[in-house]
Design a protein around this nucleic acid. Structure first.
Lengths: 193, 193
DNA sequence: AGATGACTAGAACGAACGCTCTATCCAGTA
DNA sequence: TACTGGATAGAGCGTTCGTTCTAGTCATCT
């Protein structure tokens, strides 16, 4: 099975859930919206995800985690200078944000924030994503010669600032916060050399 | 009217809406939750807010706007040195976050992110909040002698970083991101002097 | 005393929610 | 050909949603 269709039903469901929850959050995304968007029936959704909406959300956040991690790794590996990498990363985020009509922000936070209290599994999935991203940035800085503790702290601020700037950009419908974030993170990183 | 009760019904409703939407988002907050939390009946809610849930959300975001603006102004005015003010601000946010059991993040973003697309009025209210906060930080920096354009850019990153760090702290249940944000924003601000 | 208007109270509406259920389809195997 | 089990299909469950509506309370003013 599988293989007959270009993308399997299960993958289509996860992808649709991720995209919808990125835009409308956990509570704002209905299972019928998901099945429609994924071109699958409700029966299929519950066949693949017997845990229902919560299991679906955890899976979708994992998908968003991998998505952003790939973008992050791609940019960080492409640039030789870590400071230049900050600017390149901000620019990449700005382009994606503008091209989506200010719709697609962080694929994790929107769903995670509102359910952090009520659904521990969702919060934990989001935490895994943040830890993953932090590790990617930290390792990149260490590889560039930064001391371990400096790199660890810096990586926290890099992730925080990109997350916050993406949020600001989305709400203000402007790339200015992301542009500023790139410039300032580059300057900050450079100040430790 | 008013005055007989310590806090008027209308204010109790706005306050309850703000707190609930801060924790559960727009879609995750029901009008019955609000009326229960505010100790008011559904009739009272619609009496004061005939526009229903959307009008209520706009009002609640305005409330959160003023709340965070007060905190921001308070800390920035208390500290003489703008770099020290960054650290103090991060510390204040960290204390509030930890004391609420990692429940109370930014009073604006959770509700705004998920409804940015579907409810333009809600997004616009959130945008007003971001513009307001940005202006407070920028003016403070200008008063400390920073050039206007430098202060404007810096203020964007200050708001973005605090927002992102608060989000990270909430999801990771740790003040580490906020501590790092304070340290690095102080260093960044100092680097322009 | 009677009228007024701000405010409270909660029953009830249709729509949408997450989820369950049974029925059906269909490739692979014996 | 008959059987099996993964996958699809969608009607329908009970509940909750935002909202509307009518009735009632209670100071205040004429």
């Amino acid at each position: 099975m599988r293989g007959k269709q270009e993308v399997g039903t299960r993958d289509r469901i996860v992808h649709a859930t991720s995209r919808l929850m990125q835009r409308h959050g956990y509570e704002g995304t209905g299972l019928k919206d998901i099945s429609r968007e994924a071109q699958a029936t409700l029966g299929s959704v519950y066949h693949f995800f017997p845990g229902g909406k919560v299991e679906l959300a955890v899976e979708a956040i994992g998908h968003g985690d991998r998505e952003f991690a790939d973008l992050l790794r791609g940019v960080l590996d492409r640039e030789d200078d870590p400071a230049a990498a900050m600017i390149a990363c901000a620019r990449e985020l700005a382009v994606g944000m503008r091209d989506s009509g200010w719709l697609d922000g962080c694929p994790v936070t929107t769903a995670a924030l509102e359910s952090a209290r009520r659904l521990p599994e969702v919060r934990e999935a989001a935490e895994r994503a943040f830890v993953n991203w932090h590790g990617i940035v930290r390792d990149r800085l260490v590889r560039s010669g930064f001391a371990a503790d400096v790199a660890d702290d810096l990586a926290h601020t890099v992730i925080s600032t990109f997350e916050g700037a993406e949020m600001s950009a989305q709400i203000m419908r402007s790339t200015t916060p992301l542009d500023a974030a790139g410039t300032h993170l580059a300057r900050l990183v450079d100040s430790y050399r």
